[in-house]
Simulated assay, not measured.
Amino acid sequence: MLTLKDPVVLAQALIRCPSVTPDENGVLTQVQTWAKSLGFSVERPVFTDKNTPDIENLYARVGKNGPHLAFAGHTDVVPVGDEKAWNFPPFEGTIKDDKLYGRGAVDMKGGIACFIAAVARYLEKNPLKGSLSLLITNDEEGPGINGTIKLLKWAADKGEKWDATIVGEPTNPNNLGDMIKIGRRGSLSGVITVTGHQGHVAYPKRAANPINLVIKLCEALKNPVLDKGSENFEPSNLEITTIDTGNTATNVIPQHSVIRFNVRYNDNWTAETLKQEIKKRLDSVKLETKGSLVPTFKIDWVISPGGVFLTKNDELVGCLSNAIKTVTGRTPELSTSGGTSDARFIKDYCPVVEFGLVGKTMHMVDECVAIDDLEKLTKIYENFLATFFNT
Rank of each mutant, 00 (worst) to 15 (best):
T340R: 00
K312W: 02
A323G: 01
K286H: 05
I346H: 05
C319Y: 01
G338A: 10
T361C: 04
G356K: 00
P305N: 11
L320N: 14
P305G: 12
V352S: 15
I324H: 04
G306M: 04
S337P: 04
G329P: 11
G339A: 09
V353T: 10
V358K: 10
L334E: 11
S304Y: 04
G329V: 10
G339F: 06
C319M: 06
G359Y: 08
R344T: 13
G307R: 12
C350I: 03
F355T: 00
A343E: 06
K298Q: 07
T336I: 13
G329R: 09
K347Y: 04
F297I: 09
V308D: 01
T340Y: 02
E354N: 07
C350Q: 07
K347M: 01
T336W: 14
S292C: 15
T289L: 09
L287R: 07
N313W: 05
W301T: 07
G306Q: 03
V358R: 09
V308W: 00
I346S: 09
S337G: 11
L293T: 05
E288P: 00
D348M: 08
S321H: 05
A343C: 12
V327Q: 08
D342S: 08
S337N: 12
V358Q: 12
I324C: 08
K298C: 02
S341N: 05
T311D: 12
K290M: 11
E354F: 08
S335R: 13
I346F: 09
D300Y: 02
T326V: 09
F345N: 11
K325S: 06
N322T: 13
V317I: 15
P305E: 12
E354G: 06
V317K: 01
D342C: 09
K325P: 00
P305M: 12
L320R: 13
A323I: 02
F355G: 00
G306N: 03
V317L: 01
C319S: 08
R330I: 13
D342T: 06
V294L: 14
E333S: 08
V353M: 11
K298S: 09
V302L: 03
N322V: 10
V327N: 05
R330D: 10
L287V: 14
N322R: 15
A323N: 01
T296S: 14
E288V: 04
I346G: 07
V308G: 02
R330M: 14
K360R: 12
D314T: 00
G307H: 13
R330F: 14
G306A: 05
R344C: 13
G356H: 08
V352H: 15
T311W: 14
L334T: 05
S337V: 13
D300P: 02
G307F: 14
T361R: 01
V308S: 03
K298D: 08
K290Y: 09
D314P: 00
P351N: 00
V294E: 13
K298Y: 03
V308P: 00
E315R: 13
N322P: 09
S304E: 14
T328N: 04
E333N: 08
F355N: 01
R344P: 08
T311S: 11
K325H: 04
R344S: 13
K298V: 03
S292H: 15
